[in-house]
Amino acid sequence: MRRSAWWMLAPYLIGLLGLVLIPFGITVAMALTEYDLINPPEWLGWANFRELWHDDGFRTALMNSLVFAAIAVPLRLGIALMLALLLHRRAFMAGSARTAAALPTAVPEIAYGLLWLWLFNPSFGPINQVLGPLFNRLGVLAPRWLTMPADARAAIILMSLFTIGEMFVILVAARQALPRDAYELAEIEDATGWDIFRRVTLPMLAPVLGVLLIRDTIMSLQLSFTPALVVTKGGPPPHSTTYLSLFVYRNAFEYLRYGYAAAATVIMLALTMLAVLIQAVILARARQMRR
């Protein structure tokens, strides 16, 4: 029995070793070198990390990534939950609405970015065609999605709010799997909708929400890459929408600084692990308190 379990696990373990652990080891090793893909790497020790510490571009990218995660992750999870609770029942057009909610996730990332590039066009884009007259009445300019730092950061977050298909599908399934008895009991006791949500739905969905929260936090470091590359190109200057993933990409593939990019990647990984650890501790304490 135990041997067959190992055989079944083997493909996953080989994949884990070949696609995660070995690349991770290479990345850590590369972070301690100067490497341009052309000549053999040269040992640098901690020099890449010291340079990162003084690099304004890196610090900005790091802060942008943290702010993006802090705003986008709760919003994405909240919207996915809201849509799942709204659309989990069988109702008129619910199927079509579910498809519409899940569909943007299926659009290839580059195509999705190019679509938003048109949507955000300052003069011809439909968003500002609608917002322009409204803002003009208030005597202020419509958002300048591609040229003002705060507006551009908001644009990247806005783009991320529509690619919640996976979370939405998981939450719909999780909600549909909740026992009816609990809801019937709550109805008998005249509980309000808010009470049912707070005392029945939320606690029962909490394990799923916890997993999704951790997963989306990890994902958030990658989510911003294509939009920032395609739509805002890391700007407006100097680095308004340069996130860690774009910083790594540019240093590695555009400037051939693979060692430096690897050092930034190691920091990115460390941060991800720290964020996951903090969330795991908080969720574990929440579970203990409920008991």
């Binding site: 090793a29 590369m30 301690l32 053999p40 040269e42 040992w43």
Partner: peptide
């Protein structure tokens, strides 16, 4: 250092 560099170089 040399050993590590050589190992990294070989690996990469």
């Amino acid at each position: 250092k040399r050993l590590l560099t050589a190992a990294v170089a070989a690996l990469l």
